[in-house]
Amino acid sequence: MTATTTGTRPQKKAPGTFELGLSRIGYETRLYFRSPDTLFFTFFFPFIMLGIFTAAFSASGNIGANPDGSGGVSVGAYYLPGMLAAGMLLSGVQNLAVDIAGEKSDGTLKRLGGTPLSPLSYFLGKIGQVFVTAILQAGLLLLVARFLLDIALPTEPEKWATFAWVFLFGVITSAFLGIALASVPRSGKSATAVVIPVVLVLQFISGVYLQFTQLPEWMQNLASIFPLKWMAQGMRSVFLPESFAGAEQTGSWDLVWVAGALGMWLVVGLVVSRVTFRWIRRDA
């Protein structure tokens, strides 16, 4: 190195945490779209389910129709909010829990732990990836709903404001719950076996695949403990007509409760993630 500069040090500035976080988002997102399993079971799963439900139940008429068959919404329109909520859950919880558990067992985390990458940059990358993929997924779902299934989307700005906060709040909560859940599987191979049943059962009891308002009360109460029910309810408030609010548990959309439940689960996810995450499994 030649000392041609005076008063200034040679340029050896370490890259910033945020800057590296951005670089991780690009890297993680690329990896996401290169994994066929993730594409099928996380990204396209809500599309597949929406397609199946629409095809299977459309013949039995509109949901919430009057006795004379008029009114109500199409099957596709009814299931759209549930599928958006499922996408939020899959993009965060399922995606990250399986991904990080795999990275823990295949040595990726150990290698990163030996580099000057800050854990904060690593998490910025993961959460950023969840946001990028969840936004693409939701956007694509809305396009499919509008143009392929011919579902009328809300036009009121308030509805879209509700959509925005429920979506953002739900996705960040899902992302942290995914990081927290990644500490449960003992190996990368068992990760899908541990995570997928949890996510699947939640989808059944929380009103994604089955009409929530038709479920027995005990099941509705059970689902109310978990965040997915609230994400789905928030989404129903955006996409279903006001007349459907009466069928909800308390006869209204309860958006304050949606925010409260998601906030509580976000704190749980943050605390558990913070406590359980390590680059490598701690030894005795």
Partner: peptide
């Protein structure tokens, strides 16, 4: 290239 980005030099 990605890993190179972690280091100052």
């Amino acid at each position: 290239r990605h890993f190179a980005g972690f280091y100052p030099n």
